Simulated scan of single mutants.
Amino acid sequence: MAGTRRRQAGEGGISEYQTKAGPRFLIKYAAQRADGTKRVVLKRGFRTRREAAAVLRAEIRKTEMGEWVDPSKQRLDAYLAEWMAAQRLHPSTMSSYRRNIRLHIDPYLGAQSVARLTGPMVDAWMRELEASGRADGAGGLSARTVRYVFTILRAALSDAVRQGRLAVNPTDRATPPSASEARPPEMQAWTAAELARFMRWVDADDPDSAMGWRLLAATGMRCGEALALRWRDVDLDAARPQVRRSVGTVKDKGAGQRLVEGPTKTGQSRVIDLDAGTVAALRRYRAAREHVSVDLVRDSALVLSGLDGSHRHPERFSRRFTAQVVRARRALGEEQLPAIRLHDLRHTHATLLLADGVPVKVVSERLGHANATITLTVYQHVHPGMGREAADRFAALLEG
């Protein structure tokens, strides 16, 4: 190309070649292996000369700094360990990523070199997970889990492309389970009458637990947010708790479980208005706790702590709710109270408000969703009836 400076020794080179999709560029440079020997590296598939030049500069710099890794030699498991060490994620997310890499990626693809991974390999891996991927040997993983693990691998290999380790991400040429196939289980929600029926029963059966269930149902808080709430966050006079943080379970191989407090799911705090009945229940609950120990009602104390002041374990808290629903159904009659999960109290809160005509933006803010579109997407099942009502109102306007 006229006017282009000739590259000097050690600077590598860029060449253009033709494909059915149009011109592409490859880079060529010399690098030294860990054993001292040298090899010539070729990387293909760059769409522009500028993109190729940027990767070439990065690779040359790695060779000069002694940071270059032979792309044909580095195993996927080694790369993923290196990639995870550089991530800045919530502790529970880090724990989840590590667990899924350890159980569902490394045993299947870990020995493959990063540079030799292909789309068909990734497809075959996902089909194997669906057929027999459970760690306990009891069958395959759900489409939802396979898609989640796929997104971890995709993110890791996307960074490899960005860093110049790969020219093409093999997951771009693979077909994971679709979003519709990976839909979460259908949510359940109680009617207002069913919720009231349960709360009356649990108030009489276990007042301490009742406060937790009432707080979740009345605010739409996530379980981890409620379990991280402290008395200094609750303004009873203004009837407003401020949701600032969340507690979650982190599982580390060989180290068991630990509870970690961190930010809310969106990283944002929010204030939720409380109804008078829930405020009154909180005052009674606080007085009862103070009678047990003044330490349980200090500003820094957790509202829903155990009697020793420590965090309640989210998973045990959830199981406690499930057990109480089972007992309540026996006492009240199964037809009077459908079985739901603890998280469904959040769905119940949102569904009742939306069905009663509360604006989506208000409900979204109470739930702590990043935006109202998420609320509309999650609770679209609430809207067909509301849409019919809107259509009838519009017709009435025309007739009037």
Results as ranks from 00 to 15, higher is better:
residue 321 F to T: 00
residue 360 V to P: 11
residue 355 A to W: 11
residue 386 M to R: 15
residue 315 E to S: 13
residue 323 A to Y: 11
residue 221 M to F: 05
residue 388 R to T: 10
residue 218 A to T: 15
residue 78 A to H: 11
residue 350 A to Q: 03
residue 101 I to K: 00
residue 316 R to A: 11
residue 351 T to Q: 00
residue 88 R to G: 05
residue 385 G to V: 02
residue 196 A to G: 11
residue 373 T to G: 13
residue 381 H to A: 05
residue 222 R to G: 01
residue 23 P to A: 05
residue 386 M to H: 10
residue 190 W to M: 03
residue 57 R to C: 03
residue 399 E to W: 11
residue 295 D to H: 11
residue 99 R to V: 09
residue 344 D to I: 02
residue 231 W to M: 02
residue 173 R to Q: 12
residue 211 M to W: 01
residue 258 R to D: 09
residue 87 Q to R: 15
residue 136 D to F: 00
residue 162 R to L: 10
residue 7 R to Q: 07
residue 206 D to L: 04
residue 378 V to H: 07
residue 19 T to R: 09
residue 226 A to H: 06
residue 281 A to Q: 04
residue 53 A to Y: 04
residue 107 P to N: 08
residue 76 L to R: 02
residue 351 T to M: 00
residue 193 A to T: 09
residue 125 W to M: 00
residue 308 D to V: 00
residue 290 E to Y: 11
residue 94 M to W: 07
residue 306 G to Y: 07
residue 336 Q to R: 13
residue 242 Q to T: 15
residue 398 L to P: 07
residue 21 A to M: 02
residue 23 P to S: 08
residue 14 I to E: 03
residue 10 G to Y: 04
residue 47 R to P: 04
residue 310 S to H: 14
residue 310 S to I: 05
residue 291 H to K: 14
residue 244 R to F: 06
residue 127 R to D: 14
residue 143 A to F: 02
residue 82 E to S: 15
residue 223 C to L: 12
residue 382 V to D: 00
residue 188 Q to F: 11
residue 228 A to R: 00
residue 207 P to L: 05
residue 312 R to V: 03
residue 118 T to K: 14
residue 369 H to W: 05
residue 230 R to S: 00
residue 267 G to N: 09
residue 339 A to C: 14
residue 360 V to K: 06
residue 368 G to Q: 02
residue 374 I to M: 15
residue 65 M to G: 07
residue 68 W to S: 03
residue 210 A to P: 06
residue 371 N to S: 14
residue 92 S to W: 02
residue 169 N to H: 07
residue 227 L to I: 03
residue 145 T to S: 11
residue 163 Q to K: 09
residue 182 A to C: 10
residue 362 V to F: 10
residue 156 A to L: 05
residue 332 L to C: 06
residue 166 L to T: 02
residue 81 A to C: 10
residue 41 V to W: 08
residue 157 L to C: 06
residue 176 P to Y: 03
residue 95 S to A: 07
residue 198 F to S: 03
residue 259 L to Y: 04
residue 338 P to W: 10
residue 65 M to N: 12
residue 21 A to T: 08
residue 395 A to T: 12
residue 328 A to E: 05
residue 225 E to I: 02
residue 245 R to P: 09
residue 165 R to V: 04
residue 110 G to W: 03
residue 305 S to H: 05
residue 18 Q to G: 09
residue 56 L to K: 01
residue 5 R to N: 12
residue 34 A to W: 00
residue 300 S to A: 12
residue 44 R to Q: 14
residue 52 A to C: 09
residue 346 R to Q: 05
residue 145 T to A: 10
residue 192 A to I: 12
residue 95 S to V: 01
residue 117 L to K: 10
residue 306 G to A: 08
residue 49 R to S: 10
residue 53 A to I: 04
residue 157 L to R: 00
residue 158 S to K: 14
residue 250 V to Q: 08
residue 105 I to W: 06
residue 270 R to V: 03
residue 340 I to D: 07
residue 96 S to L: 13
residue 184 P to K: 07
residue 362 V to G: 07
residue 125 W to F: 01
residue 336 Q to I: 04
residue 396 A to K: 14
residue 201 W to M: 01
residue 313 H to N: 14
residue 84 M to C: 15
residue 316 R to K: 07
